[in-house]
Design a protein around this nucleic acid. Sequence first.
DNA 1: AAGTGGTCTAGACCACGTG
DNA 2: ACGTGGTCTAGACCACTTG
Lengths: 229, 229
Amino acid sequence: MPEGTDHSVAEPAYVRIAGEYARRIRGGELPPGMQLPSYAEIAQQNGVSDIVVRKALELLQSQGLVRSVRRRGVFVADRPNLVRVSPERQLEAAERSFQNESDQQIQVERETEQIPATNDLAEALGVPVGAEIKHVVTRATEDGRPISISDTYQPLDVIDISGADFLEETISDKLPTPVHAEWLRTTPGDLVKSVHQRFIAADDRIIMISDVSYPRGRYDAFVFRMSLK
Amino acid sequence: MPEGTDHSVAEPAYVRIAGEYARRIRGGELPPGMQLPSYAEIAQQNGVSDIVVRKALELLQSQGLVRSVRRRGVFVADRPNLVRVSPERQLEAAERSFQNESDQQIQVERETEQIPATNDLAEALGVPVGAEIKHVVTRATEDGRPISISDTYQPLDVIDISGADFLEETISDKLPTPVHAEWLRTTPGDLVKSVHQRFIAADDRIIMISDVSYPRGRYDAFVFRMSLK
DNA sequence: AAGTGGTCTAGACCACGTG
DNA sequence: ACGTGGTCTAGACCACTTG
């Protein structure tokens, strides 16, 4: 135990270190893709143990500022904003939901199957348990790297979502389903940004529900644009 | 080092423990406000050291499922959704943005001042540096407990925001400003949910900008409702 | 006085990537 | 062979709350 260490509450070492890196990243001094020094190095530079550095970088990771790659290092995150637009462009294809990625190679693949509704799905969609429903899995990659995966469910009699009058989106941080985790190649324990969508008709019928997962650390923030008039 | 421990990648102990509690909380077995066992107890029950338990509960905290109170314990979070509605009700007063809280005592206080625009503010609002602008601080409490604080800035010639044609909202997790942290009484290092708003006129003039902070762990998720027609 | 969560140390093993 | 990040242990001090 270091004697005379300042434990005067206010600002723990890991917060200070995280703050410094956050500033340098936001200021552009550390550009996207740049590798950070190793834990050991940062620890030495700041005169703390490596576990403090780990906490600091965890903090940065939960802000989406860095991503750590096992056995390789910690890197400044590419940080395009994920932009969601409402309502007029909301219904465009998934590929269009991304901003600042026009140069990138974004590939989207879909798989469709027909399944009987589980209890949860039946309740969510308002259909009888066991009723056949349509399930679409959509996976997107950029330059071969996975950037999103979604499960979409709808009753068989729904042709498209033009019958929807309202859209409700719920954003949260979650542990991904095993299937989503595998596709996004997240480390066990990594949270993902989850967007749950419900397309609702005027008679409150649920037209479609969708669960989308995005890797944390890929997107800096979610942006919603909406017309007020 | 315990010999024969299974370090077979797949699922670290802290993820397993976090998952168990997440399930029990989501399932209602552990109701909002209930105190969890102490680190030491959970550690003993699961045959791990307390640091593993800490990581597990950190994971729950970053999902907004629990909140930890220093020197008292860890509690299941009250988890009303923060609902944001677009566009028709978007412009209502802040008090109206909350759902399922109608019984609660929500108090809102405002402070207004006039300040010269800093570089950042001038750029954000599109006014000359040093131009006088209006700054409003809004603080909300529920039963005396702080639940949000915001800084709102607008040029002096803007009377209200009815002149705005578009609203852009950016949601992210951030380290709060010192003022916000103090009001929300967050522990140093705690992230907050930050909503940055820009009210934009048809001629791209910025009518108003606003930075709102919400304590993490108070809100389960952000919900956006929008009309599609 | 006992218990709590928050911070920090020093040290260990693992599996994998790189040189 | 070495370095990396990921996981985990055992132990310590602090400042505060609770009974």
